[in-house]
Simulated assay, not measured.
Amino acid sequence: MPAPIVVMGVSGSGKSTVGAALAQRLRVPFADADDFHPPANIAKMTAGEPLDDDDRLPWLDSIGEWLALHRDGGVMSCSALKRKYRDQLRGHCALIEFLHLEGSVEVIGRRQASRPGHFMPASLLASQFDTLEPLEADEHGLAIDVDQSIDAIIESYVRATDSHPAQQEDR
C-alpha cells in the first residue's frame, strides 16, 4: 500500500499545484497545508512576520492527523522545511514519502511574484530558504528541480518511485 506523500519546499515552489496534480495522477485525496493554518498564523504571515516553532506546532499536528487518516494513500502539500517538522509529522504517521520541490532563490522568487493575493508575501522568501533543511539520507523521498513543467516533475517522481522496489516493499 502506498504511503502518504508530502510535497515539500519553500513558499512559491509549486507545492499546491504539483501536489494536486500528483494526487489526481495517483487517484488519491489531496490536502493543502495552507488550509490547516489557524487564523492567527495567516494574520502573522500576511503582516510579513515569519512563523516560529510555537506557531507551527498545532498546525503540524493537524497535518499529521490528516496524514495518519490517509496512511494508505494521500498527498499533502506542506512546507516541512525543518527535519524536526518532518519528524513531528512522522510522529502521527511513521512512513511518509517526501517530494522536495527545490529551486534557486531566483526561480522561486519569479514563481512567487506570479501569485497575487497569496497570504505569504515575497518578503518572507529569504527566511524560508534560511529555515530549509533538505531531506536527509534516512528520510524517504527525493528532491526534484522545480524549473520544469508540472507534468515533467510528476513524471520524474513517478519514474523514480516506480524504479525503487525496496521502497515499495517498505510501504
Rank of each mutant, 00 (worst) to 15 (best):
G109Q: 09
F129Q: 03
Q167W: 14
P165K: 00
G109K: 07
V28F: 07
A20W: 01
G19H: 02
D130Q: 14
P2W: 10
L142E: 04
I63M: 14
S114C: 01
R27Q: 14
I63N: 13
H100N: 00
D35I: 02
L67I: 06
S62Y: 06
S123C: 04
V28S: 06
K82H: 11
S62Q: 14
E136V: 11
P29Y: 11
V75I: 04
P38S: 11
S77L: 05
S77C: 14
L67N: 02
L81I: 10
H70M: 00
L57Y: 09
G117K: 08
D55Q: 12
H164T: 12
D61C: 00
Q112H: 13
R27G: 03
G12Y: 09
A40V: 12
D72N: 13
P121F: 06
H140S: 09
T17D: 01
P121Y: 09
M45R: 10
L26K: 13
Q167V: 00
A40I: 08
S163P: 07
I5G: 00
I144R: 03
R86P: 12
I154F: 12
R25D: 06
H140I: 07
D147S: 13
D162L: 13
G73A: 04
D145M: 09
V105K: 10
R25K: 13
L81G: 07
S104N: 11
A113K: 11
S163E: 15
I5W: 04
P121R: 06
D53N: 13
L125E: 05
F36W: 08
V107A: 11
S104V: 05
W66T: 02
I153P: 03
I5K: 03
A21C: 06
D138S: 13
D35K: 04
G48E: 05
I154S: 10
C93Y: 04
K44Y: 09
P165W: 00
F98L: 06
D35T: 11
V7P: 04
S79K: 05
F129I: 00
V10I: 10
E169N: 09
V6K: 06
S114R: 07
R27I: 00
R110T: 07
K15C: 03
L67P: 10
G117D: 02
D147N: 15
W59D: 02
Q24T: 12
G9H: 05
V6P: 07
V28M: 06
S11T: 07
T46V: 05
R90I: 04
L124A: 03
K82F: 01
Y157R: 00
Q128N: 08
V105L: 05
M120I: 12
L69R: 15
R27T: 14
L101M: 01
G48K: 07
D55K: 09
H92D: 05
L142A: 00
H100P: 02
P50I: 08
A43S: 15
E155H: 11
L135F: 07
L135M: 09
S79G: 04
L99H: 04
C93H: 12
E102C: 01
S149F: 10
A152Q: 15
D72M: 06
M76K: 12
D130L: 05
P4G: 03
G103A: 07
A3V: 08
A143G: 13
V158Y: 13
M8N: 06
T161L: 01
A3H: 03
S123H: 06
S104E: 12
A31E: 15
A160P: 08
A3Y: 08
G103Y: 01
H118W: 08
